[in-house]
Computed example of a mutant assay.
Amino acid sequence: MSLSMSAARTLGPTTVRRTLQTARRSRRVPRACHHLGPRCDSDSKGDTEPCSLHRRNLLQLVASSVITADLAWPANTFAEDASASTLPKDYLKLAPKLVDAVLESLDVQDAGAGEFEVRKVADNAKPLVREFMSRWKDDRRVVGETSHDEITESIRILADFYLRNGQRTALPRATVDSVRGHLMTAKEALPEPEKKNFLGF
Rank of each mutant, 00 (worst) to 15 (best):
S2Y: 11
W136S: 03
V179F: 06
A82T: 08
R168D: 08
E194D: 04
G12T: 04
N197I: 01
G46S: 07
L103G: 09
G37D: 11
L199Q: 11
L36V: 10
I67R: 09
E188K: 06
L36K: 09
M5G: 02
R164H: 05
D123R: 04
Y162I: 06
G181F: 06
W136I: 04
P50S: 12
A174V: 11
F198S: 11
A101N: 05
K120E: 13
L11H: 05
R135W: 06
A113V: 02
T68W: 07
F201R: 14
S105V: 03
S64F: 12
S42E: 08
T175L: 12
W136R: 08
E131R: 14
S154W: 07
S2R: 11
A174I: 10
G12F: 06
L36N: 09
R173C: 03
P38D: 12
Q21G: 01
A82Y: 11
T68R: 03
H182A: 05
T152C: 12
V102K: 05
V176E: 04
V118K: 10
A23Q: 09
R173E: 15
V179K: 02
Q21E: 13
R141V: 02
R24K: 13
G181A: 12
F201V: 08
V108N: 01
G114C: 01
Q109H: 02
G181H: 08
E131M: 09
K195L: 06
D139K: 11
T15L: 13
M1I: 07
L199G: 07
Q109V: 00
L36W: 08
R31P: 01
D100I: 04
A95W: 03
R27V: 05
A7Q: 09
N57M: 14
R18E: 14
E192L: 06
W136C: 02
T175K: 08
R180K: 12
D139M: 14
M184P: 00
L3M: 11
G37Y: 13
A75Y: 06
P127N: 14
C51V: 02
R24Q: 15
A84F: 06
L53T: 13
F201Y: 10
E188Q: 09
A8D: 03
G12V: 06
D138Y: 15
R56Q: 11
L106I: 12
M5K: 10
Y162P: 00
E115D: 10
P191T: 01
S178K: 13
